[in-house]
């Protein structure tokens, strides 16, 4: 537990989770049209307007949340978004496998030729490990703030 809460270890966890998403966002921001085509390949959203909106906005969400998580600014929000994306992607990968569609992941832009399959699912779910470790830190922090509060109550009680 001491190790998990160690600031350097926590930084590393945030750097892994945030870093992967920053890395993933860069080539998608550079070429949104190629990313739009990757989205269409999944055959879940195919209406051009929605696909294009997602292609323009999603990489920026990844980038901003990734940077904020590493900087430890609004880290709970950044953690929620990135963990949510990991879960959404795993559902996408799993349903794509079940539907038997054979496509490139597109996760790290169109030059990423990894195919959607079990290996990719494992790679994606592995990100839940640093995510869980970061969450433990949040829990501990929140617990200490909460447990500090009741201690103040008895002091006020005699006054009334």
């Amino acid at each position: 537990m001491q190790l998990i809460l160690n600031p350097i270890f926590q930084f590393l966890c945030r750097a892994v989770l945030g870093g992967v998403f920053i890395w993933a966002s860069v080539s998608k921001i550079a070429d949104p049209a190629a990313f739009a085509q990757s989205i269409v390949n999944y055959k879940i959203v195919t209406a051009p307007v929605w696909v294009n909106l997602a292609a323009v906005i999603m990489p920026w969400v990844e980038l901003v949340a990734g940077v904020l998580l590493i900087l430890n600014v609004w880290s709970r929000g950044a953690w929620t978004i990135l963990t949510g994306l990991v879960l959404v992607f795993s559902v996408l990968i799993a349903t794509t496998m079940v539907r038997g569609i054979d496509i490139a992941c597109g996760c790290f832009g169109s030059s990423d030729t990894a195919r959607v399959g079990l290996g990719l699912l494992v790679r994606d779910l592995a990100l839940l490990v640093p995510a869980a470790l970061v969450f433990l830190k949040f829990r501990t922090q929140d617990a200490t703030t909460v447990s500090a509060a009741p201690a103040a109550v008895p002091e006020e009680a005699p006054a009334s």
Binding site: W60, A65, R76
Partner: peptide, 17 residues
């Protein structure tokens, strides 16, 4: 805190995008 910050970040990223 989680929800509030999530909304802030989504708004910020959407605007930047």
């Amino acid at each position: 805190k989680y929800l509030k910050q999530t909304v802030y970040i989504l708004a910020l990223a959407g605007a930047a995008a």
